[in-house]
């Protein structure tokens, strides 16, 4: 391990430990690391947008390929900054409206064509007993689960009578799903901790070993 590698591992370990120190209680080391983190992340955006958007999507195509009309999205992008001047802030709505309209146009089709229709079709499952007990049981669970969940989230009518009963079944299904989500979330958080402990034990630990 070179001196530079040692230095970068020690610096990383110092910041990681500073952040972990919050588990004991709030302290200046934590605050320092937290502020550095916020700053570096914000700085990352500047480099990224400069290289990947301004240079690659605007300047290069405009000057190398003669696509002069890209000056318009560039100007629309700059109009966004009008938000910082109360008197002119309404101008930023033009750029925002362009993006919102564009996203809305894509979503209007893709949400219906790409989610609602295929997911509805996938729920129309056969209950033919010849498919075997397991398949029919699964189909029943899926059909009942989808309908009762949709009913549970239907708030335009009071949950009474059949609607209330179905919503009650819906909440049981939802609890099972949320339980599964919780189990998975526990798994996710622990995995992230394992990653950082590995860094401290093997990378930083290896570096300490080399020193002594």
């Amino acid at each position: 391990m070179t001196l530079v590698e040692q230095l970068q591992i020690w610096l990383g370990a110092f910041l990681v430990l500073s952040l972990f120190s919050f588990l004991y209680k709030d302290n200046p080391f934590y605050k320092f690391a937290e502020h550095i983190f916020a700053g570096l992340s914000a700085g990352y955006y500047i480099g990224l947008i400069w290289q990947n958007v301004i240079i690659q999507q605007l300047i290069d195509p405009m000057f190398d390929q003669g696509r002069w009309w890209l000056v318009f999205p560039g100007l629309l992008g700059l109009l966004m900054f009008a938000r910082f001047f109360p008197k002119w802030s309404w101008i930023s709505r033009i750029s925002l409206a362009f993006i919102m309209g564009n996203t809305a146009g894509v979503f209007l089709i893709s949400q219906l064509h790409g989610i609602v229709l295929p997911q509805t079709v996938a729920t129309m499952l056969s209950l033919d007993p010849r498919n075997g007990f397991g398949t029919v049981l699964l189909a029943l669970i899926v059909v009942c689960g989808v309908i009762s969940t949709l009913v549970y989230f239907y708030f335009s009518k009071e949950h009474k009578g059949i609607l209330g009963g179905t919503a009650k079944v819906g909440i049981w299904f939802i609890m099972i799903s949320f339980g599964a989500h919780f189990g998975y979330t526990v798994m996710a958080r622990i995995s992230l901790l394992i990653g950082q402990v590995r860094f401290l034990m093997f990378d930083w630990g290896g570096s300490i070993k080399q020193l002594f």
Binding site: V106, S110, Q111, H113, G114, I115, P118, Q119, V121, A122, V142, S177, A180, H181, Y184, T185, M187, A188, S191
Partner: peptide, 29 residues
């Protein structure tokens, strides 16, 4: 919803555990 549905290119996914349970209906469909 945007790519697979319109262009029919198959999509497979590796997800974090927090997101994975949400994707089961798409696998089933």
């Amino acid at each position: 919803s945007i790519v697979n549905a319109q262009y029919k290119t198959p999509v497979g996914a590796g997800m974090t555990a927090v997101m994975a349970p949400k994707m089961y209906p798409f696998v089933q469909a």
